[in-house]
Design a protein around this nucleic acid. Sequence first.
DNA 1: TTAATAGTTCAAAAGCTTTTGAACTATGTA
DNA 2: TACATAGTTCAAAAGCTTTTGAACTATTAA
Lengths: 95, 95
Amino acid sequence: MLNQSQRSNASVQIFKALADPIRLAIIQHLNQLDHKVACGEVGRAMHISKTSGSYHFKILQEAGLISVNKVGREKYVQLDRSTFDHYLIHFWQNL
Amino acid sequence: MLNQSQRSNASVQIFKALADPIRLAIIQHLNQLDHKVACGEVGRAMHISKTSGSYHFKILQEAGLISVNKVGREKYVQLDRSTFDHYLIHFWQNL
DNA sequence: TTAATAGTTCAAAAGCTTTTGAACTATGTA
DNA sequence: TACATAGTTCAAAAGCTTTTGAACTATTAA
């Protein structure tokens, strides 16, 4: 039988990124704000350590669920709604 | 910080169920057939052991992504599209 | 009966994910 | 300059998921 990477594809990566309570809470928070916000500020609102925040934002970014831009020492993040649309809203078309 | 079960909720369970290449392949297969089919038949089509099949169907069922009915010694499964609609198609409304 | 088939359960092993704290880079401020 | 702040990286530990084969239940067929 095939191993993880042999079967892996983009949908699996998206759903793994969504399959975590902290990351869903981050998404909910970013959705409510609906504008760019610094990682640290979000992390503080989630009551997680900065290391843990860094880890979760990386997973969301690699899945294409957030877009990122760095300004000075701060990293601003924002939802990338086109990815949600593609994999969730149009799930059956894309399967 | 909270542990897994303290944060867990239904969306996380759904996305965990979707976050696996074998289970996505099963969903794809059931979607194409669009009628009841026995677990064993699906498992054979996926080239997985029956133990592994039993494990994956349990996860899909507990997430509410499939409905199940047993006839004799066979267990027939079918997609529950209302769950997909609720958590994927209406993702933002439900967040 | 006996044997075959569909599926489940169990515990162990293998594999993957998440958290942690310390050490780090880079930028901004006094 | 020195110090503070935002975020990253690393390795180890803790925790969770998946696969495996053997043993099991229940049903069907010869």
